[in-house]
Amino acid sequence: MTTVPGANAVVFVSFSARPDACRDMEGPPLSDVPIVYAVDTTTWLILSVQK
């Protein structure tokens, strides 16, 4: 997990999986699907999700 502060009490949170995680599951490798959340730290609501 990586976090980066943004403006107006927003923090961007990124998750990345280990290359060997979930290797027996169907679908694209998790390492190929970056996910970034924008979170308002005042209300703790997720403002957006980027895949």
Rank of each mutant, 00 (worst) to 15 (best):
W44M: 08
T42H: 01
P19Y: 12
R23D: 13
S48C: 03
I35Q: 05
D32H: 07
T43W: 05
T43H: 10
S16H: 08
A21N: 14
T2A: 06
R23M: 13
V13T: 10
F12K: 12
A38D: 02
A38Q: 09
P34F: 02
K51W: 04
F12V: 14
I35D: 01
P5Y: 04
D40T: 02
S48T: 14
T41H: 09
K51I: 05
T42V: 04
F15Y: 13
V4A: 11
L30R: 03
D24F: 11
E26V: 08
T41M: 13
V39D: 04
V11K: 11
P29T: 04
S14H: 09
F12N: 09
A7G: 07
P28L: 02
F12T: 06
A21C: 08
L45V: 10
F12R: 11
P28T: 03
P34G: 02
D40G: 04
V33R: 11
A17N: 09
S16P: 00
L47F: 01
L30G: 12
V36G: 04
A9C: 01
V33A: 01
R18D: 10
A17C: 06
Q50G: 10
A21Q: 14
L30M: 11
P5N: 07
T3I: 15
S31Y: 00
S31H: 08
P19M: 08
F15H: 04
V39N: 04
P28R: 10
P28G: 03
W44N: 13
P28W: 05
G27A: 06
P19Q: 11
L45N: 13
D40I: 02
P29R: 13
I35W: 01
D32Q: 07
P34T: 03
C22M: 13
D20A: 12
M1Q: 11
P19V: 01
S48R: 15
W44R: 06
L47P: 04
G27M: 07
P28E: 09
G27K: 05
V49P: 03
M25C: 08
E26W: 09
P19R: 00
P34L: 01
R18G: 11
C22V: 07
V4K: 13
V49E: 13
T41D: 03
E26S: 15
